[in-house]
Each structure stands twice: as structure tokens, then as C-alpha cells.
Design a protein around this nucleic acid. Sequence first.
DNA 1: GTCTGTTTTTAGTCGAGACTAAATATTTAG
DNA 2: CTAAATATTTAGTCTCGACTAAAAACAGAC
Lengths: 221, 221
Amino acid sequence: MEISVSQENYLKAIYKLASREGVASNQAIASVLESTPASVTNMLRKLTEMGWIDYEAYRGATLTAAGNKRALELVRKHRLWEVFLVEKLQYDWDAVHPLAEELEHIGGEELVNRLDAFLGHPQYDPHGDPIPDSEGNIRKRQHVMAASELNVGQDFAVCGVRDSSSLFLQHLDRLGIELGKRYALTERLEFDRSMVWQAESGQTTTVSQEVASNVLIQRVK
Amino acid sequence: MEISVSQENYLKAIYKLASREGVASNQAIASVLESTPASVTNMLRKLTEMGWIDYEAYRGATLTAAGNKRALELVRKHRLWEVFLVEKLQYDWDAVHPLAEELEHIGGEELVNRLDAFLGHPQYDPHGDPIPDSEGNIRKRQHVMAASELNVGQDFAVCGVRDSSSLFLQHLDRLGIELGKRYALTERLEFDRSMVWQAESGQTTTVSQEVASNVLIQRVK
DNA sequence: GTCTGTTTTTAGTCGAGACTAAATATTTAG
DNA sequence: CTAAATATTTAGTCTCGACTAAAAACAGAC
């Protein structure tokens, strides 16, 4: 039985929610998919019959091995297409998500593997999220934390974002913050806990607590 | 009112049929879409309401200006994705059609124009079909004819195919026939009207009438 | 243990887009 | 000009995925 676009989106939603908070409620799945709990119940039943998930009424859903593989393949496709759109088609990093959302449902393993090779087997997507390999292995990065957890005096490099909404990414653009850029945390302001970051060029940027908690970094040296 | 994938496929079908044989019958549209005449009737009504086509019962359908623009955009997207798949992802020319069929429905003008630029504004797709520009202008090639119409002694270059089914394209691969390759027609065999083509390398290939009538060429020199 | 509030499921509908079978309209042959 | 053949439309269903409103199950407070 061939899986539909809509069903693939359920798998992705369950994958995301299950990795974060154990098992997902229908409510939660519905809100991710901008749907209703009633619709979710029906689809979870169908996905169970099809062998993609295990699901018991009132117990929540978990992906089967097949479902997990499929979800990872979708994540892989999504992130590789994002790399393509940014690197090859020169899209801004805040504009690629909706297109990747469509592209990820096209073709099968053959296409995604060719795309991967064409792009030179990239490790991370334009938002710093790791790209699963063809076996579904996802490299977990060590020592990644939110910028908000830093202490004054520490050096760090920006390596990802927690919020990849267009609004947030555009805000980072305005602040001149981009992946790979290095800073030193020179000051933490008492008043609102905002931070002063000094780039290698010497330029400083003031970053609110709200922004810092959505920027992922790695300490350097 | 946003157009659906299915509706876009109707526009493409009408575009193809109308350019070939004036106005299309429901029967014809149904067979292109592997559907039934009854289904076609309903959809044609809807497309008329939406302003994509003009349609009168028993009179057939024609694209409106908007419909024509949309159909050309689809053809453009399809052919550009085929170029991408062959040139960048190294797909064989006989394998790209089904993928392009899916990709062509993704994104809008922005995406297709960026893809076009990335590919270097190619003029023809991997099967030799011309790619409409962003205004929907389609370069009509002069002096293109079927190889079957040649006379003995003429020199020519292969520039396209009439049948782009996987089966036919694989057959051409086996015969060593590819786009851009030059030949001289050295002989026409009495028995079954098959042709002998001599490549620049001196190698000769015997080509059946059936094959020759599906290969498009331009005379050279 | 029972009551109250939340969450989930049932039941019944809806729209899109397809299908079959039957009824009409159109064209063609005689 | 009429009869037969062909093409199109109507009428009625089906499946997929969604929805709302109402019923049922569960969890936490007392």
C-alpha cells in the first residue's frame, strides 16, 4: 500500500513529537499538522494497519522500525533540498522551508541519494540541523548549547538555530548573525539579561535573552 | 481559487491536444490522463468556472490566456527539471519524465526562474524539446523533420525525439543514437525501408522505419 | 471511591476527484 | 431523412482526508 503525502506528514509529526516528549497526544499531533484530534484518530488507525506506527487508543503512538526509517528519509530529503535551494539557487535561508516541505515528498531513495552526492554529502542544512545519512544515521553534535547559557568571556561559534521561522531568521540577518560566525561574549547586561557579542572584526552586537536562547552555539578554544 | 495538481494536469493535457489537433474531445483528454470521459466533463466545468479554459458542451475546450500561460509555465518547469536531473544528478534521459511530472507542480515562478538561471538558461531539454522562456515564448526550431523523411546522401544531426517513452529511448541508447550526433544517410534498404546511417566515426547503424520516424533531425551543410 | 475537567473517540458530514452504468446528444451511413 | 454508431453528459457511488458535535474514557482532587 503506497503512502500518501498526508500520511508522510503524519509520520514526520510523530517523529518530531516522539523525540521531544516521549509519546505524542492526538491534540499535539493535530496542532502540529494544523488539524483536529478527531482527524488524527482516524489517520493513526490507518497508519497502524499499514504498519508504520504502533498505536493504542489513549496510549499514544510510536513509530515502528519502518515508520522511523521513513520519517528519517523525509527529514533527510527535506534538509538536502534546503541545502540545494540555498547553495545552488541562492535562496535566503528564511525562505526555503515551505518549498522543501513540498519537495521532500517527491521521488524515492534514488533521487535523494543522487541529490546528496550532487551537493557533496553535506552534513548540515542551512539552519545548522544535521542531515541523516542514507542509512538514517543522524550525527549528534557534541557540546551544542543555546547561546543564552554562555558565561562572559567565552568564545563561541554559531552553529544552528532552535527557531527556524522566517521571522526569526530575518531578525538574525539584521543583526548580522550567521552560521559559522565566531564571537566572544564580552558582557551581560543586568537590566534585561541581554548579551553583548563581539565578532572577530571587533564589531559588537547586542542580543536579547529571547534571541540568544534560540541560537545554538559551540564553544571554541 | 488555488489550482490543484490534478487541475494543472488537465491544463497540460488540453495544451498538448489543442496544439496538435485543434480542439480536444473528452475522450482524448481522458485517455491522456488515464481517466474516463465522465470525469473529464466534471473537471472541464470546474476549470471553466475558474477561468482557465473556455468550454461548451459538445464543443470541446480551449485554454484562456491565463490557462495558456499556466500550461506553458508547467511545460517550462517540467523541461527545466529534466535538464537538472540529467545534467546535475546524472540520471539517464529515459528515467527523468516521471520525476519531472511530480516536480513541475512545486513552487511558482520564483523557483522556476532560479532553476533556469542555475542551469544557465538551457534552450532544450534532454529529449531535444524546446524550453519556453519566462514569458512563455517557445522558440520554434526551423527545418526540423523526422529522420524517415530524409533522402539518401543527406547529412544530418539528431536534435530530438517524437516518442520519449523509456522503451524507445533505451532502444536509441542501444543503437548509439544521441542528441547532437551527426550522420550521413548512406542507404535505404528496399525490403523494409530501413535506413543505414553512417556516423562521423565511420561506424554504420541500421535504423528501422519505425525508429526513424520517431527521431527528429536537422539537415546540415 | 467519586466527581470534575480534560482528552480521545464516535458518529455523521463534506468536498475533491475519481468511477460505472444509463441516458442523451451528435455525427455518419445508407 | 432516418437509423446506427459514437461521443458526451447525468445520476449515483466510492475513497481519501478533513471537519463538527456529542459521547465516552481517563486523570486528578477531594
